[in-house]
């Protein structure tokens, strides 16, 4: 039986071998690593920033950093944990740097363009928009934890590793985020 890492389709040994080859300069191995993980990295980056151009830039930055530092990867944590940590750190740093993170109304509007139909059939589009707006309005720490856990399906252990926080802190942040969303949506329901 082959053992695979969470988030990676490769058996652990194969991935270690790939990483070793990529670290040694094997361009094919780096491309395979890239193809294996690019969609998840890009998706998380986009979910966090809501801007297609910025998400593409973040994805580039993550892999550039990753391949430059590949030689220092010791395999103490899983590769995907390390990758997500680099992704989240890069995303948060870059979003602060370009000041796009929840500060400009235009960006929020732009982000909402990517809220699409086609989810659960019985959800009122107004409620869907209200939820998207409420998520956008959450403080950064709560929003990142909520998006990673409830939207992207990361475990609290994975979130803790990616953000450098304890598993319990991740749970607390998601709990707080959900409480705020419930309040906002209840108000929205009363108003409508």
């Amino acid at each position: 039986m082959q053992i695979t890492q969470v988030g990676s389709p490769w058996p652990v040994e194969d991935e270690r071998s790939l990483i070793a080859r990529a670290a040694a300069g094997d361009r094919v191995a780096t491309r395979v690593l890239y193809d294996t993980h690019v969609l998840r990295v890009h998706r998380l980056a986009f979910r966090l920033c809501g801007d297609p151009d910025l998400a593409a830039d973040l994805t580039q930055d993550v892999f550039v950093q990753l391949f430059r530092q590949l030689g220092t990867f010791r395999g103490e944590s899983s590769f995907t944990t390390w990758l997500h940590r680099v992704t989240v750190t890069t995303a948060l740093n870059s979003m602060r740097k370009v000041k796009r993170f929840r500060e400009h109304e235009a960006d929020l509007e732009e982000a909402r363009e990517f809220t699409v139909n086609g989810g659960e059939g019985d959800v009122d589009p107004d409620v869907r928009d209200a939820l998207a707006a409420a998520i956008d309005a959450l403080p950064e720490s709560l929003r990142v934890a909520l998006v990673m856990h409830a939207i992207e399906g990361y475990t609290h252990i994975e979130i803790g590793a990616a953000l450098g926080i304890a598993e319990g802190t991740s749970k607390k942040r998601v709990f707080d985020a959900r409480a705020r969303l419930r309040t906002v949506l209840a108000i929205h329901r009363e108003e409508s």
């Binding site: 890009h42 998706r43 986009f46 979910r47 809501g50 297609p52 998400a55 982000a111 990517f114 809220t115 699409v116 139909n117 086609g118 989810g119 659960e120 959800v123 409620v127 869907r128 939820l131 998207a132 998520i135 409830a150 939207i151 992207e152 399906g153 949506l185």
Partner: peptide, 13 residues
């Protein structure tokens, strides 16, 4: 709603 959001919130191109 969050299950719905997983399919609809900021769906990346």
């Amino acid at each position: 709603l969050l299950k719905d959001a997983a399919r609809t919130y900021r769906v990346p191109p």
